[in-house]
Write a protein that binds this DNA or RNA. Structure first.
Length: 552
RNA sequence: UGCCCGAUGGUGUAACUGGCAACACGCUUGAUUUUGAUUCAAGAAAGUCCAGGUUCGAGCCCUGGUCGGGCAACCA
């Protein structure tokens, strides 16, 4: 296990910092805003931040960036905490940017006192005009020259609730002609007479992200503040505040966010899917949210493995969803109990099997592990098999049932199809087969080798269950390249519900159980289940070489 | 027409910091298999965005281009 995996660029930076003695231990943080549910992109960040701290013996804080009371809710805080834990990580401290409101306020006062910030009465439109453009310098606000004394008084009044929302802001006094737009006198504080999910009505002025994030890192003595690429231009401001405030110098590093084929990671757009009912909530199994993939049956192990495999770099990427599916299958193959479930039943009557007789057949639960764990399946004269496991006129390499052809019933007997019945519409309604009594699974003395093995259930004991089959939510590979509205590209067939027939053992399923329905895919029990009706989500299909063969 | 990032098989990520491009997914073929799954084996696939330069030697360094992404919210 001592294989040396090459380091990503952040690990290189950290190892250099540790080796040089710059730090003796590292501190990272995962800083979500509680305004939505976490998704796979966040999983990448979580695995990175917590992974780095674990690897180098440091710590990771969970810090909620809750500086905008109008979009943030406790519901989100709870879901985020649950998701991080589910993924398998433990934070050192649970913190909130709102914990630092008093200190952040003092930081603003300090900047004002140093003549490095001022209160501006400009409207947002006026400020936008003052900003200039990336190619043209901005212009100074007419309020830029207010005295320190006046600014202090005004800011105190802002805090005291004297002014209405939007009437005034505090801005840093930097350079309206700066090539970095973010350095053109950015807003530090704005007035919002809004109820905050944690501080209630204690404040009516709230810091902007830029004035809260870096300082929060600094307060927590975060050594390596890791964020995504879009914050690269913010780093200059981040460093400016640290320098002017003379506080602990956390360093910001940026990596490329996760993009995946056939999906999107924008919290805003995911919220839209929820609000506009394209999906059934944040935890809809079609969503790339952690609560969604969890409900879908993805395991934390699989997601961590996935995050490990995609790597960390700075170039834009579009990860093929098949890699995630590979990780999920790999894990589920090892841990899922096997069950037989017939989706589209075709009745089989075994004509030489005694009427009224049943026997119990043993079948392995975990064929990948030598646990010896087995279950018993009732076998009898009338069975259901998959309709597609019979063909009246089979193609060349079809080795399932066909007139005169033999097949092995998994964990049962070898049967031979003697004849088939059709209804008036020409639809096959029943197969009449004979079985080889000496071919019983585990004590086969028939000497006959058949290529095809199919799953089955005893008709009389079959348990109807609901399965929900999911397909990709969007039918466009690169959602990021879209020119038009993403809602125009929703896959109308992303969810298909049907009633299928399971072996009786299915009744013992418990929530959280993962199964492989033989030859049909991986499934998990959905919370919508009731004792009267079990509901299963298809996590992912099995790889299917035959489907490819058929396409040829 | 500004500033900041980035560029290696189809997709990702590597290349011991200058020594004849590797790993994974995907794809193809074969073997095994009481899941057409799993497992195993083999194979196709990039000459590293382009053009110069330095060097015995460049994916790594230098110069100039090209292309892609980001930046003008009282969002984060």
């Amino acid at each position: 296990m001592a294989e040396e995996k090459s380091l990503n660029f952040l690990e290189e930076i950290i190892e250099r910092d540790l080796k040089s003695g710059k730090y003796t231990t590292i501190a990272t943080r995962f800083p979500p805003e509680p305004n939505g549910y976490l998704h796979l992109g966040h999983a990448k960040s979580i695995c990175l931040n917590f992974g780095l701290a674990n690897k180098y013996g440091g710590k990771t804080n969970l810090r909620f960036d809750d500086t905008n009371p109008v979009t943030e809710e406790t519901e989100y805080v709870e879901s985020i905490k649950g998701d991080v834990k589910w993924l398998g990580f433990e934070w050192s401290e649970e913190l909130y940017a709102s914990d630092y409101f008093p200190q952040l306020y003092e930081f603003a006062v300090k900047l004002i006192s140093k003549g490095l910030a001022y209160v501006d009465d400009s409207t947002s439109d006026e400020m936008a005009a003052q900003k200039g453009t990336p190619t043209q310098p901005g212009t100074n606000s007419p309020y830029r020259q207010r005295t320190i004394h006046e600014n202090l008084k005004l800011f105190a009044d802002m805090k005291a609730g004297v002014y209405p929302d939007g009437s005034k802001v505090v801005r840093a006094k930097i350079d309206m002609a700066h090539t970095n737009m973010l350095m053109r006198d950015p807003v530090l504080y704005r007035i919002k007479h809004a109820h905050h999910h944690r501080t209630g009505d204690a404040w009516c002025v709230y810091p902007m992200y830029d004035f809260a994030h870096g300082q929060s890192d600094s307060i927590e003595k975060i050594t390596h503040s890791i964020c995504t690429l879009e914050f690269v231009p913010h780093r200059e401001l981040y460093d400016w505040f640290i320098e002017k405030l003379e506080i602990y110098p956390s360093k910001q590093y940026e990596f490329a966010r996760l993009n995946m084929t056939y999906t999107m990671m924008s919290k805003r757009k995911l919220l839209q899917l929820v609000n506009e009912k394209f999906v059934n909530g944040w935890d809809d199994p079609r969503m790339p949210t952690l609560s969604g993939v969890r409900r879908r049956g993805y395991t934390p192990e699989a997601i961590r493995d996935f995050c490990d495999r995609i790597g960390i770099a700075k170039r834009d990427n579009l990860i093929d969803i098949s890699l995630l599916e590979f990780c999920v299958r790999e894990h589920l193959n090892k841990v899922s109990a096997r069950r037989m479930v017939v989706f589209d039943p075709l009745k089989v009557v075994i004509t030489n099997y005694p009427e009224g007789k049943t026997e119990l057949m043993k079948s392995e639960n975990y064929p990948e592990n030598a646990t010896g764990s087995v279950r018993e399946m009732p076998f009898g004269r009338e069975l259901f098999i998959e309709r597609e496991d019979f063909m009246e006129v089979p193609p060349k390499k079809y080795f399932r049932l066909a007139p005169g052809q033999m097949v092995r019933l998994k964990s049962g007997y070898i049967i031979k199809c003697d004849e088939f019945l059709k209804d008036a519409q020409g639809r096959v309604t029943e197969l009449r087969c004979t079985y080889l009594p000496e071919s019983r699974s585990g004590s086969d003395t028939s000497g006959i080798q058949v290529k095809g093995v199919i799953h089955w259930v005893l008709a009389e004991k079959a348990v109807p269950i609901e399965v929900r089959l999911y397909d990709r939510l969007f039918n466009v590979e690169d959602m990021g390249a879209l020119e038009d509205d993403f809602r125009n590209h929703i896959n109308p067939n992303s969810l298909q519900v049907s009633i299928v027939y399971a072996e009786p053992e299915i009744l013992n399923s418990k929530s959280g159980d993962h199964f492989q329905f033989l030859r049909m895919g991986y499934f998990c029990l959905d919370p919508d289940s009731t004792p009267a009706k079990l509901v299963f989500n298809r996590t992912v299909t099995l790889r299917d070489m035959w489907a490819k063969e058929v396409k040829k």
